[in-house]
Structures are given as C-alpha cells and as structure tokens.
Design a protein around this nucleic acid. Structure first.
Lengths: 203, 203
DNA sequence: GTCTATAACTGGATAGAC
DNA sequence: GTCTATCCAGTTATAGAC
C-alpha cells in the first residue's frame, strides 16, 4: 500500500484493516507509523542487498575482459529481477516502493543512504578498477543514470505498456535484464572513451 | 511543496498559508485539492513540452551523422535543463515533482500520459529513422532507461552529493548535460549493433 | 472576490479493560 | 498480547457575511 500511494497516502487504519488486525497493535509493535514504514523498508533491503554485495564481490574483474562492465551491472541488478521473476507480489511492491523513494526528495536523502549506498559504493569501486584512470565524476554520474534507469523499471507505472501500445510490458523483467546491462555498460564505455580522447588531444 | 512531500503530504492549509491567501480561495478558483494539483502540473508542462517538441522537430536527421542520436536526446532534455539553469526555484521544484510522479504508480499511469507522452512519441519516431530496422521494443526500452535516468537527475534528492562525498552536485546541470546525451546515445547504439549482429549471425 | 465560521469527518495515537 | 473506546488535532470542503 505504501508502494501504491506513498507514506502519506496510506492510513494506519487502512494497513491494519488489510492485515486483519487491530489498529492498536501497530502502536504495540512499533513506536509510530513512521517506524512501521522504516521496518517495511529495512526487512527486505537487508536480504536483497546482502545478495547484491556478494554477487559484486564474486565478479571476476580482468581489465582485458570487454564485458567486465556488463558483468558488474548485471551483478548489481540481477538479485532484484530474480526476486521479481518469482512473481511474489510482496517483492514487486517492495521494489516499486524503493523506486518511489529514490525519486522523492523527502525520502531519497534520508532513507536510501543507510541501506543502499554500500552496494552503490561497491559497484563504483569495481568500475574504477575496470576503467583505470576514469575520473570519479564520470563514474558517479554514470551510476546516477543507472540508478534512475533501474528504479523506473521497478516503479511499475505501466507507462511503457501504454506508450508502446502493449508491445512492451513493465512486468517483462527478462526483456529488461537482456538490455539494461548492455545499454548502461555502453554508456560508461562512451564516457570513458571520450575522456581518454580528450586527454590525448590535450597532451 | 507537492514536489517535496507529494500530493498527500501537503495540506491545502499549508499551501494557502505559504501563499498568504485564505483557504477558501482554493475552493473558489479550483474544484478541489486535486484540481489545484492538476493545474500545477499542467501549466508548466504545456510551456516546456512545446519547446521540446519544436526542438525535436528542428533536429536535422541524416543517417550518416554519427551523432544524430546525441542530438535527439539533447533536444529531448535541453529545454528542461535550460529552465533549471536560470536558477528559478519554481522550475526546479516543478521538475522534481515530475520526477516523483514518473516513478509513482498512483500518478505515473494517469498524469504523465496526457502531457508528456507526445514528446516521448516524437523522440521515438525520430530514433526509428536514425536507426533503420531497429526493433521497436529496443527503442521503447531504451527510451524507458532514458526517462528513468533523466527524471532521477531532476528529483534533486541530493543522493549523488552524499554518495560522491561532495564531488558531484545534483544541482550541477551542466555536468549532466555534458554526459547524459552521450551516455544514452551509446546505449541505443549498443542495442542496435547487438541486434544487427544477431540478425547477421542468424542469416 | 475575499474572509469568517463551522460543518463533517479522518488522522495518528493512547489509556485501560480483558 | 489483543481489543474497546476514545481523545483531539487537523483534514477537506462549504455556507454565508462582507
């Protein structure tokens, strides 16, 4: 429900009614509405981000591998789409909530950092090794573009369904997985190549 | 205020207090809170999207131009960053609101279509000409990634500021403009090249 | 057109019985 | 641990004076 209407768009009463429990129980188990919300965010974040960190750690980085960036991006996103592929609506709504939070000033600044920044840092660190000499600002901006592209696919707004007149479906995660890493990796490589060319031209 | 806390996170009283007008005036000039919200969305959308459409129309598309995709993406985003560069906080908040809406199921499905889909369709149409034979699903997914990357830069959550320890600033729109079109164009070209290679391999 | 006053109701949160 | 009952601040929205 938070994923659908946001924190302020859902009342504690709506939550407890849907859960078939009493309103007062929320305040027995949680300090307040906000603490309930944070608990919702935290529980699955620890699960999925542990997997993402492990997967990133396991990527074999060799500079001569032309697809190293693809592999890193895939490690960054695969656990997410794997949970989505199970069809579990809990996970689907969870990632939609993350998408919303990532793009909302009220939450993006205070909630995301604690749970999701470590995974981001890990990815950027690995990218730094794959693209030696790449300036950090290119890596951070490149990551920001990735983060935006990723989260919009998780939002499940159905916009692409309508825009493509049914040709593409927001729920077709396999199609996203087949394209996103390749698309993003090419973007990183382009920024990197442009930077190397600029350096060469200047020297 | 809607950009900061969302539709449900702001009360009509907060709006009228900030505007130094009486609460009842909202209901004199608008049907209800939602109509006020829609008016906020519509006013600037018509202004900026007219410019984006005109700019897209004016892009000179020649298939042999290696930077045609860059030019199209630039036309798609430039009017936005031009308004942001003026420093007008009204526009800054407006685009942050669009970012939030684009990633929220409650709004992404019903609000975005009317005002922003025509610009998207125009861009995709032009991309189709630049990449003859590219399958539509590649174009739509590529557009979705662009839309996500773009809107996250507009959200102004300050996440990149913290993530990069101050090296990159959400408010540094020039840095984004210098990178986003190049990054996205490379992504499109990659999908296109992969598809052509697959066709060749199959034949 | 603008303001006062208020209706009608819902929000988060709690005290206390069981 | 769970439920009943309730508080009360704050919500959208409107009727009617000016």
């Amino acid at each position: 429900m938070f994923a659908q209407y946001g924190f302020h768009g859902v009342t504690v009463r709506q939550v407890t009614t849907a859960a078939n429990v009493d309103v007062a129980l929320v305040y027995y188990y949680f300090e307040n509405k906000r603490a309930l919300f944070d608990a919702v965010l935290l529980r699955r974040a620890t699960i999925v981000n542990k997997e993402r960190l492990d997967l990133l750690e396991a990527v074999d980085i060799s500079p001569e591998d032309g697809c190293a960036i693809e592999k890193l991006v895939a490690a960054f996103v695969d656990p997410i789409y794997r949970y989505l592929a199970t069809g579990d609506s809990g996970w689907r709504h969870y990632f939609a909530l993350i998408a919303q939070i990532n793009n909302a000033p009220e939450w993006g600044a205070q909630v995301m950092p604690g749970f999701f920044d470590p995974v981001a840092q890990k990815l950027i660190e690995a990218l730094r090794k794959v693209m030696p000499g790449a300036p950090d600002d290119d890596l951070f901006w490149g990551f920001d573009f990735l983060s935006g592209a990723l989260t919009l696919t998780l939002a499940g707004t159905g916009r692409i369904d309508r825009l493509s007149d049914g040709l593409c479906l927001s729920s077709d995660y396999a199609s996203i997985q087949a394209r996103l890493p390749r698309y993003i990796a090419a973007g990183f490589r382009q920024l990197y190549a442009d930077r190397l060319a600029a350096k060469k031209g200047a020297s």
